[in-house]
C-alpha cells in the first residue's frame, strides 16, 4: 500500500471505524498543527454521457489538515465529511507511516481497515448479484 492508497483509504473510511482502529493502536504522538482541521467543499465533476467532456455535478464536504510530528514527519489529510477528529487521525497515520512506527501502523490499522472496508463492499456486491435477472426462454415442444 503506497501513500496515495493509504490516504484514499483513510479518506473513505467511516470516521467511527477509523477511530476504533486508532484507539486500538494506543499511540499518542506529540505533534504541532501546520493547518488546523478545516471543513470545506470540493466541486465534483462528471462527464457528459459518462465518457465525454466534464461538467460540474455538485459539491461534497471534505475536511483537511496538516501536522508535523516531533521527528519532523509531516502528515496530510483530506477526508470525506466534516469530522475534524477523522482528519486529525488520518493525518497522524499519514505522518507515522513515514517513520519508525510504519510497520505497526500498517499491520495494526491500515491492513485491518482495508480488510473491513473490502468486506463491506463485498457484501454489497453479493446482495446486488443476488438480484441479477436470469432470463430463460420457453421452448415450445411440437410433439
Amino acid at each position: 500500500m503506497d501513500r496515495k492508497q493509504w490516504m484514499g483509504l483513510l479518506a473513505r473510511a467511516p470516521a467511527a471505524t477509523l477511530d476504533g482502529f486508532w484507539r486500538g493502536l494506543g499511540l499518542t504522538p506529540a505533534f504541532t498543527w501546520l493547518r488546523m482541521p478545516e471543513p470545506g467543499g470540493v466541486m465534483v465533476q462528471g462527464r457528459m454521457g459518462g465518457s465525454g467532456a466534464p461538467f460540474n455535478l455538485g459539491e461534497m464536504t471534505v475536511t483537511r489538515c496538516a501536522l508535523a510530528l516531533e521527528s519532523g514527519a509531516v502528515g496530510h489529510a483530506y477526508v470525506q465529511g466534516r469530522d475534524k477528529r477523522h482528519a486529525e487521525q488520518a493525518a497522524l497515520v499519514d505522518a507515522l507511516m513515514q517513520g519508525d512506527a510504519a510497520a505497526t501502523v500498517r499491520t495494526g490499522l491500515l491492513e485491518p481497515l482495508a480488510v473491513q472496508m473490502q468486506a463491506t463492499q463485498d457484501s454489497r456486491a453479493a446482495k446486488a448479484a443476488a438480484t441479477k435477472v436470469e432470463f430463460f426462454t420457453l421452448v415450445r415442444g411440437d410433439d
Binding site: 470540493v42 465534483v44 465533476q45 483537511r64
Partner: peptide, 8 residues
C-alpha cells in the same frame, strides 16, 4: 472551496 475533483 478546496478545488474541483477529477471527473468521476
Amino acid at each position: 472551496r478546496f478545488g474541483a475533483s477529477k471527473p468521476v
